[in-house]
Nucleic acid binder design. Sequence first.
DNA 1: GGCAAACACGAGTGATCACTCGCGTTTCTC
DNA 2: GAGAAACGCGAGTGATCACTCGTGTTTGCC
Lengths: 217, 217
Amino acid sequence: MSEDVSEESKPRRRQARGERRIAQLLQAAANVFCTYGYTATSTNAIAREASVSPGTLYQYFPNKEAIAIELGERLLHEMREAHGQAFTPGNLALPLPELLDVVVDPMIEFNCENPVFLALMHGSEVPGRIAEEHDALHANLLTSVRDVIAHFAPTLSPEERARIADMTFAIFKGGLGLVLAAPEGAERDATIAELKTVLLRYLSPLVDGTVTTTPTR
Amino acid sequence: MSEDVSEESKPRRRQARGERRIAQLLQAAANVFCTYGYTATSTNAIAREASVSPGTLYQYFPNKEAIAIELGERLLHEMREAHGQAFTPGNLALPLPELLDVVVDPMIEFNCENPVFLALMHGSEVPGRIAEEHDALHANLLTSVRDVIAHFAPTLSPEERARIADMTFAIFKGGLGLVLAAPEGAERDATIAELKTVLLRYLSPLVDGTVTTTPTR
DNA sequence: GGCAAACACGAGTGATCACTCGCGTTTCTC
DNA sequence: GAGAAACGCGAGTGATCACTCGTGTTTGCC
């Protein structure tokens, strides 16, 4: 109450060693979450992966959920940085194929380098807090996609735009799973190209002014 | 060894009441698996959902995994029945839009009526046995899709066909999630129609004899 | 009706998990 | 270099879970 603290009510001073331990523990948690999922992962397993005692783990995190939350928040922060520039208004002037590159590539790269992100954000087994933040991110991304669609196809009704945005994002998520499953290298690149082909064929008719009815017939 | 049994080594005679209990327990298991996921579901919770004591549950299933396996096998069996006729050679003669209807509709209907199927087959938290059977089904479906693609686009290389089949299936899975998330009724129907539009726009160029390079430009 | 077997129960059991505590070590501050 | 505080440890604790067992009830069969 009357304390003079800058950030929180608990003025816990961290040493450099502590920060390193936290990073090490989060990295270990990411590994085991990735392999076994959140629920099936024990805190002792995280500590073991980090070559640290259970007591040490609990010096930095009050409980198991807090580990996932901190990990999720850091990933979310990185994610926002990585994709934040993708939807800048300047990119709206790009033609569709180039816009797809600009938006899809950083998203895929992020998920390739942080596979735990999908593992954490996906299951219904994750703690409520993570799910909430994921929903918020999801909603943000959907809004951006809707805006892009509104820019390319202003004549569509809001319902149709929403449906197309949902579908576009669902396609991306499905393709992202394929990309992550593919071995790195030429095969992964080909899968990424294929995903862009899908999106392009789906969205191209909108740009050309056509309505949503069946094309090429 | 020397016993005269018709089906298994344990000639356990089931009464009608027992069969009813099994169905009741599997239904209860489906409900809780759907809500909380396999790992986070306790056997006591399943018994409680079925209004039955834990001891009764273990009279019919040797362990928790066996419940999921039996449930999975029954679903897999239903699924094979539901989709078995979809890929019959006769349907190959259909034009693409009608073929899509014939294949996609029963698949979606099955998953709408058995949402636990996706829940069980999806997570990396499921017991190994379920994952194996799911992989087998997945491989079967992919082979069927590959065959259809080979029929419509015989000039493509096997690698390209495999990639396109993978992508087609990934799109379907992504769209299926959307369909299940949509409220039943007009909105769900519209989502299904949109999913078919995606698949049609993606696959149409193959039928027209075009190669995989970017279209409409 | 009477016997055997299937069915049903629910308190109990051992294992495992998230989490704690007391104590020893390292690092910071003066 | 001395005191304080952060760090580190790992055996321990209570809760929960998968699963069992002894006992009582219902059902099928003669």
